[in-house]
Design a protein around this nucleic acid. Structure first.
Length: 279
DNA sequence: ATGTCGACTCCGAGTCGA
């Protein structure tokens, strides 16, 4: 089973490119982020004609997460327990609206999340505090789920908006004092690893960035960032047989500013496979 | 280069978000 995560930066602006990628790279399940539309606006036909079913979350032109899968989707969950909300101007009631940033499905018994972690905007901005609280709540919910489902493979996939290592940006001096590289953000990312999840792409030795800003010729200069990840439980990591960062998807006509990250799972492997076949 | 892109409003340039 081949699964991928991709911040598509508007599914309406790019659905042809996305479906072409799914077919060309033989993807079974795609987690999308920044679809930037409501379910009613989602270009379903392009995916469905290619044999993919959809699970879509979106409230307006911002954020939005989705799954496209040509294997049956089960156990859909929108958001997670304790997920904080956000508004630039908090309403009188104090109830902050929940954003479309987290969607979980199960496919072939594998629990998959499509996550669009808040950007944070600037250190000290309310959005930065929101980012850290959002990650903390995700960690708590993931931990609780893993305790309840200790054997089920799980992966957190998406745009984490964090560059965990200095090598994940092209020039650390550019990022001093900015989001994505601050100690609290990196600690929040590390906390998932400390809980026993692993970066299954980095662990296979895959190098390179997953995002290049549209501005300032960042892609031709290869001035990018590695901020899109697949964090898997140990039972998920055991299934992984290949991983790639699809750098070529940043080139050509009307690319997203992010590229897909692909992980291939061997669903046949089991402890029984060493036994002789008896007919 | 203050270097781009996408969605909104509501018809076209300004605004927000990244």
């Amino acid at each position: 089973m081949r699964i991928a995560t991709w911040n598509v930066n508007s599914v309406r602006a790019r659905f042809g490119r996305i479906v072409d990628f799914l077919e060309r790279r033989d993807i079974d399940v795609l987690a999308m982020q920044e679809t930037k539309c409501t379910p009613a606006q989602f270009p379903r036909e392009a995916f469905e004609e290619a044999g993919y079913e959809l699970e879509v979350v979106g409230t307006n032109q911002w954020n939005g997460v989705a799954f496209a899968s040509r294997l049956p989707i089960e156990e859909v969950q929108v958001g997670f327990d304790g997920m904080p909300g956000y508004a630039n101007t908090p309403p009188e009631s104090g109830e902050l609206p929940l954003e479309a940033r987290a969607l979980a499905v199960s496919v072939e018994g594998v629990r998959l999340w499509s996550l669009y972690v808040p950007n944070g905007r600037e250190l000290g901005h309310p959005h930065y505090d929101y980012k850290l609280r959002w990650l903390d709540a995700l960690r708590a919910d993931t931990d609780a789920w893993r305790r309840a489902n200790p054997d089920q493979p799980l992966a957190l996939m998406g745009d984490f908006n964090i560059a965990p290592l200095d090598i994940d940006v092209w020039d650390m001096s550019v990022f001093e004092g900015h989001t994505h590289v601050s100690a609290p953000e990196r600690a929040a990312f590390q906390a998932f690893l400390d809980d026993g999840l692993t970066d299954v792409v980095r662990d296979r030795g895959v190098e390179g960035y997953t995002y290049w800003d549209y501005k300032a010729g960042r892609f031709p200069k290869n001035e990018g960032m590695r901020i899109d990840f697949v964090l898997g439980s140990s039972s998920f990591a055991d299934l992984v047989v290949d991983a790639t960062i699809e750098r070529d998807e940043r080139a050509g006509d009307a690319p997203s500013d992010h590229v897909p990250v692909v992980v291939e799972l061997d669903m046949e492997t089991s402890i029984d496979d060493d036994r002789p076949m008896i007919f």
